[in-house]
Design a protein around this nucleic acid. Structure first.
Lengths: 220, 220
DNA sequence: GTCTATATCATGATAGAC
DNA sequence: GTCTATCATGATATAGAC
């Protein structure tokens, strides 16, 4: 019985931590807040995860394991269907960023909460977290990069690399901007409610990303 | 004499804080680190700024005052030259993001250090900092938004708004990515050294942003 | 204006009973 | 596995001498 509860406890801690990290950041969230929100004992975090740092990593691992698998699955499926021919850039972009945005509508995968957390964390100053994320992303990014190189053989690889980076940034901010920072969005655009906004984000973002990816090359 | 030193002390604190905040984040930087690096006394931060929070705001205010003024000056100059005619989208994008990227080469304005800090901070979870930044940006963003609306009368305003947001995100990550996170950049692109990379960032980014801004509208 | 010394508090982590 | 109680640390902020 006591052992049975512990599975719940682990998940409850992870869920509460994910929400609180998203709202207040890692440093802005204490273990007392987490255990309080989860309705578990303070000491249970260290019992189950060992440390706060390990808890942070587990919050990401739980979601990224699925996301990575899914992204690879989607890419592999498309490549098999295409045979020897290169994929279209729009397919590749859709596979990478569409899969990500799809999580927003899937509460079981963390939904918007996790996406916002992930977007912000890509630029987190803490070393251990950047290293960890880079490791988690590496394989998938390599595969998608290779697909883009093949799809755009005439574009210098350095250029594609940069544009991949630009796309990542645009996407992260788009997610955060759905309700976090309102620098640019907040205006006389009252013909949409919040739900519309999220539904329409994906096609909007995809158009933008593809436009950027296929833009004329810069002259140095 | 004692009074004369205080100007130096203020600036020394701000310089040290800016560097440390960029490297380790706000929560990851203690006032002991700041005063230690600045070579001033621990108590001087509270004497000169009142609190750590106020210090954070002053670090930004010092740089953004110049950036905002410069962005408005550039836009006003272009609009006067254009008379009644709308500006070209490329001019507007260049005025907003080019002015920002120009700071990277200007050590007296904070250089790359401040840009990285600014980019990351746009998604900082702390309320006081998001509110503060939104206030600081507001006037300039309104002016540039209006210019884009005028330049692209056939594009729905909501669409332009989102694309502005996407451009902001791409730019922030591009800056951070010059040496922070290396998700996508880190490869067999050894034909460029670090200096080249920064010099070439601006034209690369501008091409991407304009491509995205002028992409075909999404179909919902 | 500058400094030392210190008050006050919150944090992450753990020891040890149950 | 769970809980209480507590330790050790490091943080911001300030009082008060110079």
């Amino acid at each position: 019985m006591a052992e049975t509860r512990s599975v719940d406890t682990r998940e409850r801690i992870l869920d509460a931590a994910e929400k609180l990290f998203t709202a207040n950041g890692f440093d802005g969230t204490s273990m007392r807040q987490i255990t309080g929100a989860a309705g578990v004992n303070l000491a249970s975090v260290n019992y189950h995860f060992g440390s706060k740092e390990a808890l942070v990593q587990e919050v990401f691992r739980r979601r990224l394991a699925w996301l990575n698998t899914e992204r690879l699955r989607v890419l592999t499926t498309m490549e098999q269907a295409a045979g020897d021919k290169p994929l279209k850039p729009s397919q590749i972009v859709e596979g990478f960023f569409g899969t990500l945005l799809g999580m927003a509508q899937d509460e079981a995968r963390g939904g918007v909460t996790f996406l916002r957390l992930l977007g912000r964390t890509l630029t987190d100053p803490a070393d251990f977290i950047r290293t960890f994320l880079a490791d988690e992303y590496q394989e998938v990014v390599e595969r998608y990069k290779a697909a883009l190189f093949k799809a755009l053989p005439d574009v210098p690889r350095a250029e594609i690399a940069w544009r991949f980076h630009f796309m990542l940034g645009a996407t992260s901010y788009a997610i955060a901007g759905t309700d976090a920072l309102r620098l640019v969005t907040d205006w006389q655009v009252d013909d949409e409610d919040a739900t519309d906004r999220l539904d329409r984000l994906q096609p909007r973002l995809m158009s933008f990303l593809l436009g950027g990816l296929r833009a004329p090359l810069p002259k140095f």
